[in-house]
């Protein structure tokens, strides 16, 4: 792979272009970045709190924390599967290191998520969870989750063009992960040994860490964050290796 400074500029401009297209394509434009998770949240609130009455005090905060950080992971990884396909026309005309293509997706989603995050922080502040000294650890958690999001995205972006059939597996995997990450139930209420098994899932660990930090004002165990970080790094290393290994092969894939 041949990297240049202009490649960073390209990632930035292409990510902005994607965001601009999102906001151009609907009448409500950028508002959808916020409306979308909000509607998502309302659906879950309706099902679990109103219909099934499974909630309880603080359920909405519990649910919202889970959904906000899950959505960042979920939407980035799913979109990354199509990163290379999206730029097929371009990479069959000029050389680009293929690693750049998922980076465009990851960067664009990070920009979107930042807006949601600011609004979420505002919501927490106004609803009884004001900023405290524990919030100083937010950048650390953001970094850890970013590495996980990036790692999973690189891997998915590298593999799906080579073996398109795996997309089904990714879809099922993401759904399964969604149900097992403790988004709408507390994993700590699950009995051992199942609980420990569920915590092998790095997103389960991540969501629990965010709740510790934002809702309980306590610093999550660093060993757990280290586990998520290592998980992300391994996924990312494999993904980057594949993207580099097949760098000159991707343009030859038709469709």
């Amino acid at each position: 792979m041949r990297f240049r400074k202009r490649h960073a500029e390209l990632v930035y401009h292409c990510a902005l272009s994607d965001l601009k297209r999102d906001s151009d394509q609907a009448y409500l434009g950028m508002l959808w970045w916020v409306l979308d998770p909000l509607i998502y949240l309302c659906t879950f609130y309706l099902i679990f709190e109103v219909i099934m009455q499974r909630g309880g005090p603080g359920f909405i905060h519990f649910l919202l924390t889970g959904l906000v950080f899950w959505r960042w992971f979920d939407s980035t990884v799913r979109l990354s599967a199509f990163s290379i396909k999206k730029y097929q026309g371009i990479i069959s005309q000029v050389y680009l290191p293929k690693l750049l293509l998922p980076l465009i997706t990851v960067t664009g989603n990070l920009m979107k998520f930042s807006l949601v995050l600011v609004l979420f922080a505002l919501f927490l502040t106004l609803s009884g969870h004001p900023p405290g000294s524990s919030w100083l650890a937010i950048p650390l958690l953001l970094l850890v989750q970013f590495v996980l999001v990036l790692g999973a995205s690189l891997l998915v972006a590298a593999i799906i063009p080579l073996i398109p059939d795996l997309m089904q597996l990714v879809n099922y995997g993401m759904t399964l992960m969604f149900f097992m990450s403790g988004i709408f139930f507390d994993l700590n209420s699950v009995d051992e040994p199942l609980r420990s098994v569920l915590y092998f899932n790095p997103m389960a660990v991540m969501l629990s860490a965010w709740r510790d930090l934002l809702l309980e004002a306590s610093i999550p165990p660093l060993a757990q964050l280290g586990y998520v970080l290592a998980f992300g790094l391994v996924l990312g290393a494999v993904g980057a290796w594949l993207l580099n290994r097949f760098d000159l092969h991707y343009p030859r894939l038709v469709n």
């Binding site: 202009r6 500029e9 390209l10 272009s17 371009i90 000029v94 680009l96």
Partner: peptide
């Protein structure tokens, strides 16, 4: 974007 793709900064 086109210019950067064509090798410019």
């Amino acid at each position: 974007i086109s210019g950067i793709l064509l090798g410019m900064h």
